[in-house]
């Protein structure tokens, strides 16, 4: 097979048919060609600065020039975080902006959906470690569990409300998605707003629950009201629910961005990947909560 000197374009996926020739620019008419991008490197630069900022704040870098001063560490951490967030947004912006030049939107949408599914598989495994920890300790240590006290009741109406709120938000999210498919933009917007409010409500419930537990002496960090077994339970309880809460918060940011793009008129009835991704992520967060609820409150 010969390679005639066709002017190069940065290549990208998805050849069409065997023997199919490129156009005079070296582009396959059926593929989408991504331009070079500095964003991945810049995001990494931000990410590199942050841990060094933290280490510097801890005062562990004496003799490292300015890094020896914790104040500089604070500056480094904040600058790194700003670069990270800013460049991540730049990256997203580049992706959103280059979308219309895609020549094979269907294939690209399908690939992005694979991405979300695989990413969520990885996330599920991270939660799997939390569940694994919980069930192993539950099996080997009879004392593993929440403390029992006269004025301490683990689980209760508040958690039930929170679960109900999160489950209903999954339904409203799905309604919004369907509305989008039927191009009922106003209904979609309304339902996304309801979903976000319900999500915030869930976080509020959990925050209140945490506060209540801590007030009654069930501390996340060290042995508290009863014997030491509850300390490991506290660690896994607060980490598990905290990690889940973090995911709810990320999901809220995604939903908010979808709402903003919906407001800007970005989505079409057949092409609204960001909305699909956000809704899948939201369902995932929901499912994990159900598992977590059963694990921590029912089994625990």
């Amino acid at each position: 097979m010969s390679t005639a000197p066709i002017p190069a374009a940065a290549g990208h996926p998805g050849p069409s048919a065997p023997g199919h020739l490129l156009d005079e620019h070296g582009n396959d008419p059926n593929t989408h060609i991504p331009p070079p991008s500095l964003w991945p490197l810049l995001v990494t630069v931000g990410l590199t600065m942050m841990p060094f900022g933290v280490v510097s704040i801890l005062g562990a870098l004496p003799g490292w020039g300015p890094l020896g001063y914790p104040l500089f560490g604070v500056v480094l951490l904040l600058t790194g975080a700003a670069i990270f967030v800013g460049c991540l947004m730049g990256w997203c912006h580049q992706i959103i902006r280059e979308k219309p030049i895609s020549h094979n939107p269907a294939a690209q949408q399908r690939d992005l959906q694979y991405f979300v599914l695989l990413f969520l598989t990885g996330e599920l495994m991270a939660f799997g470690a939390v569940f694994g920890y919980f069930y192993y300790r539950h099996a080997v240590d009879p004392n593993f569990g929440p403390p029992h006290g006269a004025d301490f009741h683990f689980g209760g109406p508040l958690v039930a409300y929170a679960t109900f709120v999160l489950l209903s938000s999954s339904i409203t999210c799905e309604i919004a998605h369907h509305a989008l498919q039927k191009h009922q933009v106003n209904l979609a917007k309304f339902m996304f707003v309801v979903t976000i409010l319900l999500g915030v409500g869930f976080l509020g419930c959990m925050g209140f629950e945490w506060g209540e537990f801590i007030r009654r002496g069930f501390y996340p960090l060290h042995p508290s009201i009863a014997d030491s077994s509850h300390s490991a339970f506290a660690a896994i309880f607060y980490t598990g629910t905290g990690f889940h809460g973090l995911h709810v918060a990320i999901g809220l940011v995604m939903l908010f961005m979808v709402l903003a793009r919906l407001q800007a008129g970005h989505f079409a009835a057949h092409r609204h990947f960001a909305a699909v991704a956000a809704s899948w992520y939201w369902h995932f967060v929901d499912i994990v909560w159900v598992l977590l609820f059963i694990t921590v409150y029912v089994v625990g």
Binding site: A129, G132, P223, S228, A235, T239
Partner: peptide, 27 residues
């Protein structure tokens, strides 16, 4: 992700006072 979870437990036990892996306090 499971490796990340394991080393995160070490990180938290070291820095935030949790007791995932501290046998003396139920870990």
């Amino acid at each position: 992700p499971v490796l990340a979870a394991a080393v995160t437990m070490v990180l938290m036990d070291r820095n935030f006072g949790t007791s995932f892996t501290v046998a003396s306090s139920g870990g």
